[in-house]
Design a protein around this nucleic acid. Structure first.
Lengths: 207, 207
DNA sequence: GTTGAGATCGAACGCTCGTTCGACACCATT
DNA sequence: AATGGTGTCGAACGAGCGTTCGATCTCAAC
């Protein structure tokens, strides 16, 4: 029989919870809703998780770790700043589009946590933002001067990318490739006046 | 004595509620929190408002009306597409920066309403989005082929602008003018490859 | 077949929520 | 002095919340 480990069960609970949080919002969702969605009793939920807040924290923390790990993998060995920025954007949007519910929870429920949970997630956010701004600094050196303040530009890019949870449908007529290419063009053209130039590096290769 | 009309009192309640909603989030905020912030009793709150949902609706609806009215005023008599887009962006960001709490509530609590309330606000959103996309269509006709899908570009611009509630401090070292100019440059440069060119039309004049 | 740790659950606790209701204060008009 | 509409409020209602607890089930190990 396919026996399930405790960790696998927790993963399943988090996945189910992410769907409900994305659909109804964190505060609006009750632990009873989550238990029902995961097909366990309310009390059993607490066998795997200490609190509703920890549940949200685990979702946010793990998703952020995955995005950051993907970024490091995508940037490994790539030195050209334009290529690095392209990889950064592609990684962010690819992951977002293939984990819409989880990333909506990460983007939209950023203020729902508090204390150590909040501090921990904010630490990851700071590291990730720093990574983007370092790429922008490289880009200015190689393709400078910038047409906008670096910090404003970084948050503008995050805005373009994270806002998609309000409108983007991965199954609609705008594919992830088109989305990625469009946002790459919008940002590169606006920030350093780079012409359309799409043939920088085709895709992030898998090692 | 300075006597207060019922409408003025309602305005004050909405203003106080917007601050609390922005700080704590809609679902996290109780009617008792709102009563305390507005310095009235819980029961008195219900003398001016039918429900918590209607309160949120009134905030969102009125703010959206103000943004749209500002847009029409800013666009009146302006025909050049670049100038029209600049006015659109300036109006949005100026209003956002001077009404951060209210606009955060409008941006972040978009899914908190339901039924007729939600439908009504979504109607305004549709009209506002349409207005932007019409400007983008004009821009394509006058300044050559777009570097991105029009719909993606429109939502990317809204993303850049609306995301500011997560990071922008109007009292910080990035003034509204710099913010506006930066986002104008980022978008125009990216969408139609327009060079920096800031001297299109200096400011939206007041009649 | 007994054991015991892992897994599950129904039922309940204390609390807060949105909303309602009846009573009271104010005050310009009679 | 009596009236009645406007504004205000304390107190309560029923419902739902996050969380806990003790009891039960499962099943590999002995």
């Amino acid at each position: 029989m396919a026996s399930i480990t405790r960790d696998q069960k927790l993963d399943a609970l988090l996945a189910a919870a992410a769907q409900v949080f994305a659909a109804r919002g964190y505060h609006q969702t009750s632990m009873r809703d989550l238990a029902r969605a995961a097909d366990v009793s309310l009390a059993s939920l607490y066998y795997y998780v200490e609190s509703k807040a920890q549940l949200l924290y685990l979702i946010q923390s793990r998703q952020f770790d995955a995005v950051i790990a993907g970024m490091h993998e995508a940037l490994a060995g790539v030195t050209d700043p334009v290529a690095r920025l392209s990889r950064f954007i592609d990684n962010h949007l690819d992951y977002f589009a293939s984990h819409m519910a989880e990333m909506k929870v990460l983007s939209h429920e950023a203020e729902a946590l508090s204390g150590d949970f909040l501090h921990d997630v904010n630490e990851k956010k700071r590291a990730y933002t720093r990574a983007l701004m370092d790429i922008l600094a490289d880009l200015e050196r190689s393709h400078g001067p910038a047409h906008a303040n670096r910090r404003v530009a970084a948050y503008a890019l995050f805005g373009m990318m994270n806002w998609i949870y309000t409108w983007y449908d991965p199954l609609g007529d705008v594919g992830v490739e088109l989305l990625s290419q469009n946002i790459r063009r919008l940002f590169l053209g606006g920030y350093v006046g780079l012409p359309v130039a799409d043939a920088v590096l085709p895709r992030a290769s898998a090692g």
